[in-house]
């Protein structure tokens, strides 16, 4: 019934349909032609790439499997499969975690009022600065961390209560998103040192944590907007029925914002799937991910277009599969109306 109401409103006239198809078709060509070019290039010999544009295999040029064999069974086989597995594990784990933590935080930020004291925050930053100075001066980091925590708690208990000025939810949200403003080149060395001290270099965990932190702000921001569009009345009803916050979050809010969740999931997954700079520094060999292999195809002999094409193709196939599988959920649409109506 729902569907039909929807359909009656969003079915264009025949002329509108034609225009729609033309526009969508043009953009589909814009999107697909580069991919076609990748596909053709992956079957070309270096000489076919270098001596001019050839468009159609068997007609323009004789296709060769040399690049595919090099990547999948030849010299690069071990690299390819190892990095592939790492990429899958790291991106799925970090995306799931980011979505869990991030949507919980977004829920908190839309439904409760937080008032962190400005003074407490300043004291916290002061403690961090002090401990960095201490570490630079040669104090072992374990002792420093403990001392800094102790100092912070003492300060908070004694003078912390006197501060009146507090921040609000919007400030927290803005602080979260501001963490993405610094370009990664500026922070990659400190992050490297952080994980080195923790002995976590070249592990999945390091990458998962790093991507989790990098993606959380985006999840929080996107989900916050989706949650805001959900009427509060639903939760009130649930609360009257005795549901806890956790319960209404889990069984009312999350299902209702499924399109948003899926869109966010895809976006965040893609980010961790494709991240380069952190992956380069936090890994040595074991935990390397696919983007490194892609970037590495430009070495002393210039970009090896044929290898690059193969790698990019095998890299996007699973994500496209996921997009096809999840697209349905984005398309569910108008659920809010459905429940209310």
């Amino acid at each position: 019934m729902k569907r039909s109401r929807y359909r009656s409103i969003f079915t264009p006239s025949p002329l509108g349909m034609a225009v729609t198809y033309v526009v969508l078709g043009v953009w589909a060509f814009v999107v697909l032609f580069p991919l076609y070019w990748l596909f053709v290039t992956s079957f070309k010999l270096p000489i076919d790439v270098n001596s001019g544009p050839f468009y159609i295999p068997f007609v323009d040029f004789k296709p060769s499997l040399h690049a595919w064999t090099y990547i999948l069974v030849g010299d690069l086989r071990n690299d390819t499969f190892r990095t592939y597995r790492n990429t899958v594990v790291v991106s799925l784990a970090s995306t799931t975690l980011a979505l869990t933590f991030g949507s919980a935080a977004a829920y908190g930020l839309t439904r409760f009022k937080y008032q962190p004291k400005l003074g407490a925050i300043l004291m916290f930053i002061g403690c961090v600065v002090l401990s960095i100075i201490a570490v630079v001066l040669g104090v072992p980091w374990q002792i420093t961390v403990v001392a800094a925590i102790a100092l912070f708690i003492i300060l908070l208990q004694t003078i912390g209560k006197r501060f009146k000025r507090a921040l609000g939810n919007n400030d927290i949200a803005f602080w979260l998103i501001s963490q993405r403003m610094l370009p990664p080149v500026a922070v990659v060395i400190p992050i490297y040192i952080l994980f080195q001290r923790l002995g976590m270099l070249d592990t999945w965990q390091a990458l998962i944590i790093a991507y989790l932190a990098a993606n959380l702000p985006i999840v929080v921001w996107l989900m916050r907007d989706y949650f805001q569009t959900i009427p509060i009345e639903l939760e009130e009803c649930a609360a009257i029925d005795g549901a806890s916050y956790y319960r209404s979050f889990w069984s009312i809010i999350l299902p209702l914002s499924l399109p948003g969740l899926v869109a966010t999931f895809l976006f965040v997954l893609v980010f961790s799937w494709n991240e380069y700079l952190l992956a380069l520094f936090l890994t040595n060999a074991k935990a390397q991910t696919l983007p490194l292999t892609v970037a590495a195809q430009n070495a002393t002999r210039g970009p090896e277009w044929w290898y690059l094409s193969v790698l990019i193709l095998i890299m996007i196939v699973p994500v496209i599969g996921m997009a096809i599988a999840l697209e349905r959920y984005i398309a569910r649409g108008l659920l809010i109306g459905a429940i209310k109506g």
């Binding site: 690299d79 060395i189 490297y192 040192i193 080195q196 270099l201 070249d202 380069l280 520094f281 040595n284 060999a285 390397q288 490194l292 970037a295 590495a296 430009n298 070495a299 002393t300």
Partner: peptide, 25 residues
């Protein structure tokens, strides 16, 4: 055991590893 990184980042990668005392290589 041969480990590889992209050509363009070999210089910083090895120097970072050595100068911070990680010594993976």
């Amino acid at each position: 055991n041969v480990a590889t990184v992209p050509f363009s980042d070999l210089y910083q990668k090895a120097l970072t590893d050595f100068s911070t005392g990680t010594n993976s290589y």
